[in-house]
Simulated scan of single mutants.
Amino acid sequence: MKDQSRKRHIAKTITWRIVGTIDTIILSWIISGDPMIGLKIGSAEVVTKMLLYYFHERAWFKINLSKEGEVLESRKRHIAKTFTWRLIGTVDTMLIAWIISGDPLTGLKIGFAEVITKMLLYYFHERFWYKLNYGLSKRNKEDI
C-alpha cells in the first residue's frame, strides 16, 4: 500500500509539473516580454517545484481532515489542497522570477498572475487524479 501511494504521488508530481511549467513559461514570457526569461524561470522551477509538490502530497496523504470522524468530502479537500499548494508554489515562483529577472516587481507580477491560472489548473488536475485508481490497491477515502 505504502509503495503504491508513493508511485501515485510521484506520477501526480510529474504530471502536475508538466502542466505547471508550461503555464509558468507562458506567463513569465508574457509579463517579462522575453521568451528566454520565461524559459529560464520555468526551467529553474522544475526541480524546486517537484520537491515541494512531492512533500506537499505526502503531507496531505497523512492529514486526515475530518468532521466528527468522517473524512472530509473530496471536493472540499481538493479545494483546501489547492490553496495550500498555491501559497507554497507562488512564493517559490516569486523568488525564482525575482532572482532570474533581477526585478522584484517582475517576480510579484508573475506570482500574482499565476495564482489564478495555477489554482484553476491544479483543481482540475486534482479532480482528474481523483478519478484514476493508479497507485491505489483499493479505492477508499484514506487513499485520496
Rank of each mutant, 00 (worst) to 15 (best):
M1N: 10
Q4P: 00
S5Y: 13
S5N: 12
R8Q: 11
T13D: 09
T13Y: 00
I14H: 06
R17A: 13
T24G: 04
I26P: 11
L27H: 15
L27W: 15
S28H: 03
I30G: 02
I30K: 07
S32I: 01
I37E: 03
G38H: 03
E45T: 09
E45I: 09
V46I: 12
V47A: 06
T48G: 03
M50E: 00
M50I: 01
Y54A: 05
A59M: 14
A59D: 05
W60T: 12
W60F: 15
K62H: 15
I63Y: 14
L65A: 14
S66A: 12
G69E: 09
S74N: 14
K76D: 10
A80P: 06
A80Y: 12
F83R: 09
F83D: 06
F83C: 12
T84E: 08
T84Y: 01
W85N: 06
L87C: 10
I88P: 06
G89M: 00
V91R: 01
D92G: 02
T93L: 02
M94H: 01
A97E: 07
I100E: 06
L105V: 15
L108I: 13
G111M: 00
F112W: 12
A113I: 10
I116Y: 12
T117V: 15
K118E: 15
K118Y: 15
F124G: 02
R127F: 07
W129L: 01
N133V: 00
L136Q: 14
K138F: 14
N140V: 02
D143I: 05
D143M: 14
